[in-house]
Deep mutational scan, measured.
Amino acid sequence: HNGKLCKLKGIAPLQLGKCNITGWLLGNPECDSLLPARSWSYIVETPNSENGACYPGDLIDYEELREQLSSVSSLERFEIFPKESSWPNHTFNGVTVSCSHRGKSSFYRNLLWLTKKGDSYPKLTNSYVNNKGKEVLVLWGVHHPSSSDEQQSLYSNGNAYVSVASSNYNRRFTPEIAARPKVRDQHGRMNYYWTLLEPGDTIIFEATGNLIAPWYAFALSRGFESGIITSNASMHECNTKCQTPQGAINSNLPFQNIHPVTIGECPKYVRSTKLRMVTGLRNIPSIQYRGLFGAIAGFIEGGWTGMIDGWYGYHHQNEQGSGYAADQKSTQNAINGITNKVNSVIEKMNTQFTAVGKEFNNLEKRMENLNKKVDDGFLDIWTYNAELLVLLENERTLDFHDLNVKNLYEKVKSQLKNNAKEIGNGCFEFYHKCDNECMESVRNGTYDYPKYSEESKLNREKIDGVKLESMGVYQILAIYSTVASSLVLLVSLGAISFWMCSNGSLQCRICI
């Protein structure tokens, strides 16, 4: 991952900044910058967002509201009850120091605090018919004063009620008058409520006091790749198909172990950190130390980045220098085999997901714990399936590479015959000098055995068991695999060879 928040398929997220979902939807004055928000790819909250409900109280069923919003990608904020005409018999300019803005008392931008007009609070009834052709999110509140005197001074009615009804919602609220500790300079409380109004449905408000009335509502448009994440990451000019709280993932790998919460087309989250597919040879310690064997393909974004291909070729060293050249036929066979294998694994496992966190309130801790156990169970199954699949494929890959290298080895052996000696570690020792032209003939299969047989015969008789390297004779190393990324691999195959001279070296080696 890149540690950044990015656009998702070209669409920017909605960053709530210092506000949370509650503050944004109710219209906390400190969240005025969010009022123009219309569309987004996903919503970003920060872990310690401080601006929620400015007048103390709870947004009821907040967790369910977050779940609903996680599939919303755009909205239209509109005046559901026009301020100047909807409440002619009531005062609608209630403000509070708890919702101060720029040093002055204020109130929510989407709600109206209705109080008595003169000395009376006549029963009010108002309704709205949803003609938007889509779901409408309606929010309101109920004020709970701290004393009967406060109730009387604001609403005149000691036994007030609030009723809200639609086809799918029907509740009646009565204020709970009680002494409470002071929070944000208030002994009173406000509880906030919401409902989704279906197209064509009607919502009716009736009250004799204590109503925090809707002013603006939201017509919602769903987008199934949307979601809500909690993150401290910063926004950058970048684009992605998959976003996590820790950063964007741009990967076609089937798995990731970065974060379980994802938005967009994302690899499946697994616990494993070692889900690797081999593309090189079986481990040979001396070669492995030099980083030549054991190439791997990573299938977990965050564990290993991208696929690494092994390729086969020849390396030689003689009086004229040293050089490398790919054996294109065996390399292409290996590439085709690995590509098919990788595609097979991805096809089997690479279903892209959006995974969002589930919200539970403080009273639902047991449910949250149960949900976590269920999620953990599914996660263990996914991890096991992934590891088992790759384990089985790896064994076949190792066998496949062994065969490829063996074929190259036999190709060289059949040409050199007794003009060189096998020394048991995949290397041959020449009994004759071999210049670049000679080396090329070994690589392309045109090695002239009779041409060098007499010199080889004489050297075999002279050496008589002495280690060949100390006599200045020449080696050919018969097994060799270097490691390159897919891009470098293609470039390498396009070149005939490249040279690395070893000044004054008397050794001649050709490596497979």
Rank of each mutant, 00 (worst) to 15 (best):
G247N: 03
L416C: 07
R460M: 02
I479F: 09
M500E: 04
L458Y: 08
E469M: 00
L403R: 12
I308M: 10
I463P: 01
N385L: 12
V390W: 05
D376E: 12
V412R: 05
I346G: 02
S456D: 02
N503I: 05
W311C: 12
N444M: 15
L468C: 00
G357Y: 13
P260H: 15
D399S: 15
Y324T: 05
R276Y: 12
E461Y: 03
R396H: 14
L388V: 12
L275E: 08
N425W: 07
T397C: 09
N340C: 08
V356H: 02
H401Q: 10
S456F: 02
I308Q: 09
K241R: 15
F498M: 05
P450A: 09
I338G: 04
R366V: 05
E359L: 11
S470Y: 09
L416A: 02
Q475C: 01
V442M: 08
A420E: 03
Q352L: 00
R366F: 09
Q352G: 15
A495E: 08
I381M: 12
K268Y: 01
A325P: 04
D435V: 03
S441C: 03
F428C: 06
F498G: 08
K373F: 10
T339M: 02
G426H: 08
T446W: 00
N239D: 15
I512D: 06
G494D: 02
K341H: 07
R290Y: 00
I479E: 11
G310M: 11
N252A: 14
C438T: 09
Q243P: 04
T383L: 05
H236C: 03
Q256E: 09
M235V: 14
Y324H: 04
M349T: 07
Q317L: 12
Q415W: 01
N343Q: 10
G504E: 05
C427E: 03
H401R: 02
L493P: 07
S456E: 00
Q320A: 11
A478H: 09
S251Q: 08
Y474I: 13
A420V: 14
Y314N: 11
N503P: 00
Q246K: 01
R509W: 02
W499G: 12
T331N: 14
I463S: 03
K358A: 12
